[in-house]
């Protein structure tokens, strides 16, 4: 799958997912171990950004050709669940700007509807880490991508970070936005008839915020 990165499924990572998937896991543990996975996702995203060669003058006087990160980045979280990933992002890029998009299901049409957006002015020049922990049908994330594209962000500069994805969501995404990068912690079996990811991990936002 081009542009889709799945974190290496190590025993350690499966162990982490075993904790956060478990319905009996307490909120404190859920938050702690989710944050750990989120940092791995962010580091993987950062790893995919281009670098340029740069001569580094080391402590002690040695010089060598190192690497410098290129370009500016920003985070965009899809309210509410996506905001849970902001701390993990800040743990890896300290003073990163963070934009927000609120998308909700329209009660009349049952389609996702954009309620609110607040994005950095210069977002068109930036690499964007789009944050939403679950990729199910991809409806709201694709709407968010639409917003970003309208603001002039290049599609290959969008990195959609999520903890768990359904194959249906990935497929939909790739058909509509083949250039958008998806970085996920794991791909689950399928969506069930109610569009829940199975086996999944429940409602991420509810569990993270303890509601």
């Amino acid at each position: 799958m081009p542009n889709v990165t799945v974190l290496p499924q190590t025993n350690q990572l499966i162990g982490l997912y075993s904790i956060i998937r478990d319905q009996n896991t307490k909120r404190g543990d859920f938050v702690f171990y989710s944050d750990r996975i989120i940092r791995l996702l962010v580091e993987e995203g950062l790893n995919q950004l281009p670098v340029e060669k740069s001569v580094i003058s080391c402590h002690g006087g040695h010089e060598y050709v190192g690497a410098k990160f290129l370009g500016k980045i920003c985070g965009v979280s899809i309210v509410r669940a996506g905001e849970s990933m902001e701390m993990g992002l800040r743990d890896c890029c300290r003073s990163v700007r963070i934009g927000k998009i609120l998308i909700q299901r329209d009660e009349e049409t049952a389609l996702p509807k954009l309620f609110y957006e607040k994005l950095p002015e210069d977002i068109s020049e930036r690499y964007v880490f789009l944050l939403d922990p679950m990729l199910a049908t991809g409806g709201s994330a694709m709407m968010a991508v639409e917003v970003l594209l309208k603001r002039g962000v290049k599609s290959n500069r969008i990195f959609f970070l999520n903890l768990l994805a359904a194959p249906e969501g990935i497929k939909a995404f790739q058909e509509k936005y083949p250039d958008v990068n998806i970085i996920t912690g794991g791909i689950d079996e399928k969506l069930d008839e109610d569009k829940y990811i199975v086996p999944g991990l429940g409602d991420f936002g509810d569990r993270y915020y303890g509601i």
């Binding site: 075993s18 998937r21 478990d22 009996n24 829940y196 199975v198 999944g200 429940g202 409602d203």
Partner: peptide
């Protein structure tokens, strides 16, 4: 592991 909300097994 049993997951929410359907008691799916993992």
């Amino acid at each position: 592991i049993k997951t929410d909300p359907r008691n799916c097994e993992f």
